[in-house]
Amino acid sequence: MKSSLAFHKVIVGLLVIYLIIPLVGTFLFSMAGKWDHTILPESYTVKWYIELFQDERFYRALQHTLFLIVVTVGLSVVIMLPTIFIITVYFGKWEKWLQAASMLPYGIPPIVGAVGLIKVYSDGPIQIAGTPWILVGAYFITILPFMYQGIRNSLRTVNAIQLVDAAELLGATKFQAFRTVVFPNIISGILVSTLLSVALLFSEFAFANLLVGGRFETIQIYLADKLNKSGHLTSAIVITYYSIILLLTGTVLKLTFRKENAPSLLKG
């Protein structure tokens, strides 16, 4: 019994090391002064961070990225949540179509998608090629699979159909049933999808570069640009945006699971 527990611990330990080494390496490199032929850096410095935090372009890029993420993810939740709820609960037979549609982004490589999008949106009624709005559209599609799977799975886990039935029999309208019974029980699921989407969009490069490029510089484009100049500085950028994501995730999770007894998908 004990030895098998130790075995599990070793496996988990190895996995953690495997995941964490690149991060630690990046962090060390971002703090390194001279680092040529030793295991750990010979000297440490924070000058890369100072340089980064003094660069106005960095703040603007970060701002752009956050703007895109908030608008896209917000839009996605507002549109997809009711859509998936209504289809799952009331129009079960259409679900396979929604599922197929939400899986489409996997089938189209970003390069192909981007070229197509530029063609469609550079003339005609909607001319948004080169503006951030085309990115919002593209990102909406990119995160569709995560939003769809996450929300649908939460709805299934809480058995939303039956909860709605029960609430309606107790005198609730369809909307009341959704607001008071379904939504509070799937909020943690929505949150997980949202966080996944945020993390994904933070590191999205292909669409940003092809569709908008330098006209609306996101953090990834800024990063790619700096990559040619200094490895230390790019490491500092990577560490900074990881920290931002971590902070964001931590805050949201903490806010949501504050109530000790509140049921959640994470607690099972």
């Binding site: 809480v158 058995n159 909860l163 039935d165 029960a166 029999l169 019974v181 029980n185 509140a262 049921p263």
Partner: peptide
């Protein structure tokens, strides 16, 4: 009418 379901359908929240 009132109904009791096989899986109870209590509101978990």
């Amino acid at each position: 009418v009132g109904m009791v379901f096989q899986s109870y359908a209590l509101f978990p929240n």
